[in-house]
Design a protein around this nucleic acid. Sequence first.
DNA 1: TTATCTGCAAACATTTTGCAGCGAG
DNA 2: CTCGCTGCAAAATGTTTGCAGATAA
Lengths: 134, 134
Amino acid sequence: MMQEPALSPVRATRQRAAIENALERSRVFMSAQELHQELKGSGRRVGLTTVYRTLQSLADASRVDVLRNENGELMYRRCESRRHHHHLVCTSCGKSVEIASDQLETWADQTARRHGFTAVKHVAEVYGLCSACS
Amino acid sequence: MMQEPALSPVRATRQRAAIENALERSRVFMSAQELHQELKGSGRRVGLTTVYRTLQSLADASRVDVLRNENGELMYRRCESRRHHHHLVCTSCGKSVEIASDQLETWADQTARRHGFTAVKHVAEVYGLCSACS
DNA sequence: TTATCTGCAAACATTTTGCAGCGAG
DNA sequence: CTCGCTGCAAAATGTTTGCAGATAA
């Protein structure tokens, strides 16, 4: 069993609390910039640099999921499960569901092996309109 | 059957020829910057702007595949098949294989439907070491 | 001839880094 | 009191755009 990395230094700062809090409330992926705006809008002032650095450290600790949107920007969302998983993301409201998929893993492994590839990793995300948006 | 878009105006310029030629010879994904360097190295001078614009238009016409590397940079490679497909990419030498995957499509559709999502699209790439590199 | 194409320079957008000051422990 | 955290300003990157001049057709 893999153990979650023991996140190095963590000082309980106002900024970090604000960021984690915002992530906790959101069920959608947000960019660092969006999160920064969100915080600013609700009166909690946190420097953009700090938002970037904090999100990065949270991602390193597998506390948030990271993926790139169409424009190549990094998007973050609180992790529900620490296990390997993928996402089903609504292209309209941004809501996302974490999905497990043994089937997908199996397919990736088999496909790779069939072509003589080893040490397989993969990325996969599914996009569509959620029931509320369609 | 979908018909390939009738690519708007296309003048046969030296630059476009150089770019298409370089793409034709390469079996690996290259960034616009890399392609630009490659051309410069082999004596064929093409402006970086032109490389970007040409690759973009080729991508629009589905003549090249586009995907983002880990750093979010756009990578291009000549398309072997115009049909929807995914890639198996060697993380060492960059060589890639186009892979079809009815299984994957089916999985994406079913997963989405199960969660009430419609209008499904998906992205998926598989990474590993090819036989020559492992 | 003329509408495209080219390419430089400048603009852009996102993310990272240098560094002086703040503040949690 | 210390050392990590913060945040401004500036740098770094990758990509796009404005525009004047070159050039296929």
